[in-house]
Design a protein around this nucleic acid. Structure first.
Lengths: 226, 226
DNA sequence: CGCTGAATCAAACGTCCGTTTCAAACATAC
DNA sequence: GTATGTTTGAAACGGACGTTTGATTCAGCG
């Protein structure tokens, strides 16, 4: 019996219940196999509520991804800006790389079933008919710009095209590790522990920084024109 | 055993037609959206032929992947062994890395729609319910063993666990590049050309070798500072 | 020829899915 | 209280899917 927020509270409750159940089932079963009936059943809401709140199944997929993507991007920017403030001049490549690869690893450690969710998110990028991918790429654009700029400042000798390629490689390392990192334990014979998030982060950062610091292929001899 | 194989020719013909159509449609539409009706229609064969030759849709997926995976592995081993023969002692990390990341890039250049197929194959790894993944991992085991051994020989100062982690990172770079490399052209503003296979290969090799040559984190030769 | 087994075919089966519909419940504003 | 707009509920719709079935074709062979 409070102010106008009572019905909104219900709305958010239903919406959130759907989002939570959808996230879990999308990750565990894959989007095509996770039926709206299973999702609404697990959420304890009516089947039609999905179309009321999200218009369609794809709208639900989009909402689930957006909900996780936003904090991830914000956390990245936060770490990057912190490094930029604390550093005299530009932050080092290592700091920039850590600001990029750290947050996803934090996320999969914090959330239960994080690996499964990471696979689900990577799947959204891979899906050839993914209209959701467009949205993610749109949101990724700002991240790409900010981080390639920072990397360019940290590695001024690298041509811009090299920065983009190596940024792409870094994304590959990150995505593959959060999505399939748990496999390493198996095929290393138990030698590697994917649950040691700090250790994995450090290893990723070392590897990627090493890659960024590799000599430029076309050689320093030729100067990029324009 | 008769030498004559006329009926076998027909069988292979139908089988091959299904495999080719399935490969194309799986890559273009994604496995769940590629219906057996669409596949058999494109192949010009009867719907029931799929179950006759492959038992189920999943059997077809498995067969399509297996057909591409095998030559890929063989090509990798061929390049690795060539490097091992030509080198005095062990081949360098660069040669080993090139033997690993080169063949997939050759493949997507050679085949039409190679990028789409690479996405499809990566999707098979990501699929949380993928029983096909088990098969691929099984086949990957030998590749992992051979290449981690070779990398260990090229980089004897690295602990074995580091080798596994960095191998995993290399797989990430490779997978992400063959599956989503075409995106780089877009977000680099046309600066990067993903169709320049040799250039991309060289860049990947440089990056990955740089990563492998990074100092070991907890190792004896730790870098000063923090 | 007639038999045999593999291969193809058209047709159907049963199921599950995303979506829609429309009425009931609900809180709010007057 | 009545009117209004929002949210939930039960039930159904129409279609697409993987799979199965049983007949049919055809080659090889004694």
């Amino acid at each position: 019996m409070t102010v106008d927020s009572s019905h909104r509270f219900d709305e958010l409750d239903t919406k959130e219940a759907i989002l939570a159940a959808a996230e879990r089932l999308f990750a565990a079963e894959g989007v095509p196999r996770a039926s709206l009936r299973a999702i609404t059943s697990e959420a304890g809401v009516n089947l039609a509520a999905v179309h009321y709140h999200f218009q369609s199944k794809e709208g639900l997929v989009r909402a689930v991804l957006e909900r996780r993507w936003q904090p991830l991007s914000e956390r990245r920017f936060e770490l990057l800006e912190r490094a930029e403030r604390s550093a005299a001049g530009a932050p080092s490549a290592e700091e920039v790389v850590r600001a990029f690869v750290g947050p996803p690893l934090e996320m999969i450690q914090r959330e239960r079933g994080g690996h499964a969710f990471a696979r689900f998110m990577l799947g959204a990028f891979i899906d050839p008919k993914g209209e959701v991918r467009e949205m993610l790429l749109e949101q990724l654009k700002e991240t790409i710009d900010r981080f390639t700029d920072a990397l360019s400042a940290a590695l001024p000798h690298l041509p811009r095209a090299e920065i983009y390629w190596r940024f792409h490689f870094m994304v590959g390392v990150m995505a593959h590790t959060i999505a399939l990192g748990s496999l390493v334990h198996g095929y290393s014979g138990g030698l590697c522990d994917p649950h040691d998030v700090e250790g994995v982060t450090q290893r990723m950062v070392d590897f990627v920084v090493g890659g960024f610091q590799a000599p430029s292929p076309a050689g320093a001899a030729t100067e990029p024109g324009s």
